[in-house]
Simulated scan of single mutants.
Amino acid sequence: MVKEYKYRGLQIEELKAMSLENLFKLLPSRARRSLTRGITDGKRKLLEEVKAANAGKTNTQIKTHLRDVIVLPYFTGITIHVYSGKEFKPVVIRPEMVGHYLGEFVLTNKRVVHGAPGVGASRSSLYVPLK
């Protein structure tokens, strides 16, 4: 049996039906402050795209540079492509992500993988220890 996710004791369907003012009371203080101070034009455009995708009115990819958007309950089930500084990486929004920022789920740096020494390297740098 699959465990039903609850956010602060409420199921995701209850959160979707809740008014924004009541939802803001459940969020952490940083997210609550950010949302009550107003939504900028860029964030408003993203929210409209998400609502259109929920309604099935659009089938295009949702791409955004906005990493500071707080995930709201009606984002669940949608794939949003978030910019990592180099490329857009897809993020499938799950109920566990509600209240977090989009940027938390896309890393901006990669793990460093060192290769062999290049042309013109000194003789001593040709030695690469085997582990």
Score class of each variant (00 low, 15 high):
L35H: 10
L66K: 10
I78M: 02
S84L: 07
S124M: 06
V50I: 15
S122N: 05
E87V: 13
R32N: 11
V106W: 05
I78D: 02
L72Q: 01
S34V: 14
V92K: 07
K110V: 09
K89A: 08
E104S: 07
G120A: 03
E87R: 10
Q61H: 15
L102P: 03
V106Y: 04
L102D: 01
F75N: 00
N59R: 09
V106F: 09
T108Q: 04
V106M: 04
I39P: 06
M97S: 04
R94N: 02
V112A: 03
K43W: 07
A52N: 14
V106N: 02
G38F: 14
K57L: 14
F88I: 07
E104Y: 09
K57G: 02
H65A: 11
V71I: 15
G85C: 07
V82G: 01
G118T: 11
R32T: 11
S124H: 09
H65T: 14
R32Q: 14
E48D: 12
D68L: 13
N54Y: 04
I80A: 07
H100A: 00
S34A: 15
P117H: 01
T40K: 13
A116S: 07
G42C: 11
S125D: 08
A31K: 05
G38P: 12
T64W: 13
T40V: 14
N59S: 13
V112M: 01
P90V: 10
L107M: 08
S124I: 11
V71Y: 01
N109D: 03
I62P: 09
R94K: 11
G118W: 09
S125C: 08
A52V: 11
D68M: 08
S122L: 10
L47F: 15
P95L: 01
V106H: 04
D68A: 13
I70W: 06
L35D: 07
G118F: 12
I78P: 02
K45V: 15
N54L: 11
P95T: 02
V119Q: 04
K51A: 14
R123T: 11
P90N: 04
K57Q: 07
G85N: 05
V69C: 09
K89D: 05
V119I: 12
A116Q: 05
I80Q: 04
E87A: 11
Y74A: 00
T64F: 15
F75P: 02
V50Q: 04
H100G: 00
T60A: 14
L72Y: 05
I93Y: 00
K57C: 02
I78F: 05
K51L: 14
R94A: 00
S84W: 06
